[in-house]
């Protein structure tokens, strides 16, 4: 043990506070949306012996769903804004692979994380480009969920926001179809969450750079040789 020379690690402030706030508001919101969404899709009878006037629990489930949807949507709009003013790891330019280097980074991620080969090049500090591309796909699905959700909600709301999305309904052939797709696409978020949480554990475990805690404190720990300096 004593023979090993400790490597110099540097602290990098990767996730700014607004990014972290977005992440946790988003995570909480989507968690609530999935739970309440499942309940709305298949409600459980909880208090059978009570009369209707004594309870409103299903109404609260739906309220939670709609309120979370609003919060998550505006949270997302805020994140879109932050993609223009945040640091290099938060910017939209770090989401879309455009040059050869970035595509190589994507391939490198496939090699080391999925094929589990040895790392050849540099390890990426913020998102790797494969993750970024996954988030872009997820953002599109997220927007679909928002649009279809608001379209379904528009008939119960007097607000102008849900009314902006009523065009979804004739496009998809009625509320029933919108509802089925809204439900189906939700599963993509369940699958994403499983993989996302696992991969964070995996990276933290194998690479020891503080992936898990970085979304709380914002810090990652990088070896000097991995920094572009």
């Amino acid at each position: 043990m004593a023979t090993a020379q400790p490597l110099p690690y540097r602290r990098v402030y990767v996730w700014e506070f607004p990014v972290r706030l977005f992440h946790w508001v988003n995570a909480t919101g989507i968690f609530l949306l999935i739970i309440t969404g499942f309940l709305i899709g298949n409600p459980q009878v909880l208090f059978r012996s009570n009369e209707a006037y004594q309870q409103y629990w299903f109404g609260w489930v739906r309220f939670t769903h709609f309120a979370s949807a609003y919060i998550v949507f505006f949270n997302f709009l805020f994140r879109v804004y932050w993609g223009f003013v945040g640091n290099q790891f938060a910017r939209w330019s770090s989401f879309f692979p455009v040059n050869k280097e970035q595509f190589l980074d994507m391939w490198e991620t496939v090699r080391i994380d999925i094929l589990q080969l040895k790392l050849k090049g540099k390890i990426s500090i913020g998102h790797n480009y494969l993750a970024s591309l996954t988030y872009i796909g997820l953002f599109i699905l997220f927007l679909f969920e928002v649009f279809s959700g608001f379209a379904l909600y528009s008939s119960m709301s007097g607000s102008f926001i849900p009314k902006l999305f009523t065009w979804m309904v004739p496009l998809m052939g009625g509320d029933a179809n919108v509802r089925i797709w809204h439900h189906m696409v939700m599963w993509a978020f369940v699958l994403f969450t499983i993989i996302h949480v696992y991969l964070t554990f995996y990276h933290d475990y194998v690479e020891g750079r503080g992936d898990m805690s970085s979304m709380l404190g914002g810090w990652k720990f990088e070896k000097d040789k991995d920094l572009n300096r």
């Binding site: 409600p43 009878v45 209707a52 309870q55 008939s155």
Partner: peptide, 22 residues
Amino acid sequence: YSRRVHDTCYRRPYYDAGLFVE
């Protein structure tokens, strides 16, 4: 056709209360 059958249904209170036929 501007209102849902659900929103004008006389059984709607049971829906909000979470009381369902199974």
